[in-house]
Write a protein that binds this DNA or RNA. Structure first.
Length: 795
DNA sequence: TCTTCATAGTTTTTT
DNA sequence: ACTATGAAGA
């Protein structure tokens, strides 16, 4: 313990050692927050707290795992493994699986992702014959999400005339009905959406005091990271858990609150003392990450926001260079500038030292292109994750249905693919009856006669076959390991055959993807056995683990030493030596969705603050004067945030203060866009101003937080539906796959896409496949089936 | 019932 | 530019 404390500065030390009551640790960017949390937990363990009496809530699963590993190094694997550590969603879904029966859920309830929720909502809107112009599924889901996060249940909504007024004003007066039907149908399907996990936890704790007490006794100390990004629902869960002892430590930075669109309430941190008057406040103000210039630039920016916790973030490193801003004619030129800058700087840095940050995922396209052209390896993060890909979903759908027959979303998907001769008409009839009787689909098709299901004999027969098949799998699901069960599923339901039919390149990709699912499940089973000694991991175990995984949580070995491309939101908590922030334009950053309120602008400014403070050594900012968006070229002007940074910390482009920097119609920018990277064939005859630009580079809400009475704010934030991602690596770094069984020998050094480099220590045959034992440098020994695994032979 | 072709609307950020 | 929907044909 002594050694640990030596590694901390005085403020950090105090924060670590104070454990007698509630504390708020205001941790500026780069101030060693994770270190404090880690050591604090270690200190608690040394002070006699048992590991399973400590609950630590992190923002991502990845953060939880990293922290667990760090703690394991101090206190040992055994203790670290017993800690309760995870995101709000993973922690409380775990509890809901245990306790949910009192609320009418089984332990195998499904967690609907945003896509499933949206299609459910869409259906309801259709059934109610509402016009889908006003009632877009996105808008409605956003509204329902907000209500849930404010703990306004459908019953509560009935009494909230202020909220109803708001919705009338938004042209969605019948939200009331949609909300009620949606919740009812999810419940009927034994399913919860993301917000339900928190809402039902609150209901559980409110209506079942004995259960609440059980967990109050269990969690003798609670820690919450990124507290500035908690919403009302989360805040209240924590409040109830620590009600009797107030042994609570929250860590956060009000300047980095960037998730209000998800219901996060900055007030939770600003008004911590209202709920915990005896709290102690600790401030971590020394930044160990960035140069003083970057820290001061960020400080001067964030000073333009009102209502913050006072703090003076400082750095004692060497001053460092100024932030550099570059302007460009077009978004395309911007990408090329970024590519050239990285190329140039990469003489002194590794590729992994770079991150390119943008406001919206849509901006990644051109950047990818520019990097690819220059053979710069990159990884892109954000967009559609592995588990959202169609093929993956199709397979997982069957698993969902097998463990949860009531999952109506899975039922519909599974019955549609592969085709079974059961069409929309049949499903519609089942749906109608299910709604009329408020009975799950599965009950109805299990007894079509009893429920008077009006279908022909052929349809009933087909339904029966399908049902029996699923039920056969269900009966063995709890005793069969996930890998062999899924293997049978893809074969017996004809998924493999169906995928095999498509011989186009995309079709082949799909087949590969299906194999990746299998290999992923196999790895899951193996790792469960090795890490936890689990003999058989079931599909239920598997689904529970992946349902709350994001692509942030998975690190691939093949992704080392690449430039990172991601949104600013996704970059939260990360750091890079060189950070390039692109698209600093009005209506993009700040986003046009957030322009109309001061609160919106302030959140965008915090977002920019987060972006800048990711940088350790160099921070570069770019903006374009024209940008292709929504199928049109827009003329844009530089972001107001550029003027928020005091001039001594930033080099703005020479044309920045020109009167009319906004591009105008005198010039055809569409032509320019197509000229490529090198010289644009552009002679500065008619527009010297622009030539100069080129030269500059080429020459070198208030809420009552003590009760269920949420805000009545009018603005609706609309979260994005689904993200689009290609699981892409740049061509230069693609790992070739070895597809044949030949060529592997004991002693070979191989590279595995997830576990990295290892040596083969054994090969045995198994069911016509090869089971290879590999001792991985970083992840230890694993047994891997070759058929489903990409192995690259190194030596 | 299923496939295909054309058209329209669409893009903030994510557990 | 891309996907989701709708109509028409197989």
């Amino acid at each position: 313990m002594e050694e640990i404390l030596k590694q901390l500065n005085d403020n950090q030390k105090e924060a670590v050692l104070y454990n007698d009551g509630p504390s708020l640790v205001v941790a500026g960017a780069g101030s060693g927050k994770t270190r404090v949390l880690t050591y604090k937990i270690a200190a608690l363990l040394k002070q006699g707290y048992l590991p399973y009496h400590i609950l630590a809530i992190t923002f991502t699963n990845k953060a939880a795992n990293e922290m667990k590993n760090r703690i394991a190094k101090i206190v040992g694997d055994q203790a670290a493994r017993q800690l309760w550590m995870g995101t709000f969603h993973s922690t409380f879904s775990r509890i809901l699986r245990i306790e949910g029966s009192v609320l009418g859920f089984t332990k195998d309830f499904t967690i609907y992702d945003t896509d499933s929720s949206k299609s459910k909502i869409k259906e309801i809107i259709k059934e109610l014959n509402l016009n889908d112009k006003d009632y877009t599924s996105k808008k409605v889901l956003a509204r329902i999400s907000k209500l849930k996060n404010d703990l306004v249940t459908p019953n509560a909504y009935d009494k909230r005339f202020d909220l109803q007024e708001t919705d009338r004003y938004q042209n969605i007066p019948r939200l009331k009905e949609i909300y009620r039907i949606y919740m009812n149908q999810c419940h009927r399907a034994n399913a919860m959406d993301f917000d339900d996990i928190l809402l039902y936890t609150n209901i559980l704790f409110r209506d079942f005091p004995d259960i609440l007490q059980k967990y109050q006794n269990q969690f003798q100390f609670v820690l919450v990271d990124e507290y500035q990004d908690t919403n009302f629902s989360q805040h209240l869960i924590v409040k109830k858990l620590v009600e009797s002892h107030h042994k609570l430590c929250v860590v956060g930075d009000d300047a980095q609150s960037i998730y209000s669109f998800r219901g996060a309430n900055i007030e939770n941190i600003l008004r911590f003392k209202d709920n915990y008057p005896e709290y102690k406040l600790f401030k971590l103000e020394q930044n160990y990450r960035s140069t003083p210039n970057i820290v001061d630039a960020a400080n001067s920016l964030i000073a333009k926001n009102k209502g913050q916790i006072k703090k003076h973030i400082f750095s004692e490193k060497n001053t460092g260079s100024k932030i550099k801003a570059y302007s460009s004619f077009s978004d395309q030129e911007e990408s090329n500038i970024v590519g050239n800058l990285i190329k140039q700087l990469s003489k002194d840095y590794e590729f992994q030292d770079f991150a390119v940050l943008y406001r919206t995922n849509a901006q990644s396209r051109l950047l990818e292109e520019a990097l690819r052209k220059r053979s710069i390896p990159y990884k892109i993060h954000g967009g559609k994750s592995f588990y959202q890909r169609k093929v993956v979903k199709d397979i997982l759908t069957y698993l969902r249905l097998i463990i949860n027959h009531k999952d109506e979303d899975a039922f519909k998907r599974a019955i549609k693919y592969p085709r079974k001769g059961i069409g929309d008409t049949t499903i519609e009839k089942i749906n109608e009856l299910a709604n009329k009787l408020n009975t799950p689909y599965w009950d109805i098709i299990s007894d079509p006669v009893g429920y008077k299901l009006d279908l022909g004999a052929a349809a009933i027969k087909k339904l029966n076959t399908f049902r029996t098949q699923i039920e056969e799998f269900s009966s063995i699901a709890s005793t069969t390991d996930a890998y062999s069960l899924t293997d049978r599923v893809v074969k017996e339901f004809g998924i493999l055959v169906e995928l095999g039919k498509d011989t186009s390149p995309e079709g082949k990709d799909d087949l590969k993807l299906a194999e990746e699912v299998l290999s992923g499940i196999h790895e899951f089973c193996e790792s469960q056995r090795e890490e936890y000694g689990v003999e058989i991991s079931t599909i239920s175990d598997y689904l529970q683990t992946i349902s709350l995984l994001t692509d942030q949580d998975t690190d691939k070995a093949e992704d080392i030493n690449k430039v990172t491309l991601m949104t600013v939101h996704a970059a939260k908590g990360l750091e890079f030596k060189n950070v390039i922030i692109v698209g600093l334009e009005e209506e993009l950053f700040p986003s046009d969705m957030n322009l109309d309120t001061d609160a919106g602008i302030e959140e965008e400014r915090r977002l920019f603050y987060v972006a800048i403070t990711r940088a350790e050594e160099n921070c570069i900012i770019t903006y374009a004067k024209s940008r292709f968006r929504n199928g049109r070229t827009l003329y844009t002007s530089p972001s107001r945030f550029l003027s928020d940074i005091e001039s001594q910390y930033i080099d703005l482009p020479v044309d920045f203060h020109d009167r009319n920097t906004r591009a105008n119609d005198e010039f055809d920018f569409n032509k320019l866009r197509n000229y490529g990277s090198s010289n644009y064939g552009f002679n500065s005859s008619n527009k010297p101003r622009y030539a100069q630009t080129q030269q500059s580079y080429y020459n070198t809400e208030t809420r009552n937080s003590s009760s269920y009475s949420p805000s009545s704010e009018v603005k609706i934030t609309t979260p994005t539906p689904s993200r689009l991602k290609k699981v892409v690596s740049s061509p230069t770094n693609d790992v070739p796959t070895t597809s044949t069984n030949t060529g592997l020998q004991v002693g070979n050094k191989v590279k595995h896409e997830r576990f990295g480099i290892g040596t083969i220590t054994g090969i045995e045959t198994m069911n016509g496949d090869y089971k290879i034992t590999i001792n991985f440098e970083n992840s230890g020994e694993k047994k891997i089936l070759q058929k489903y695994t990409k192995l690259e032979v190194i030596s």
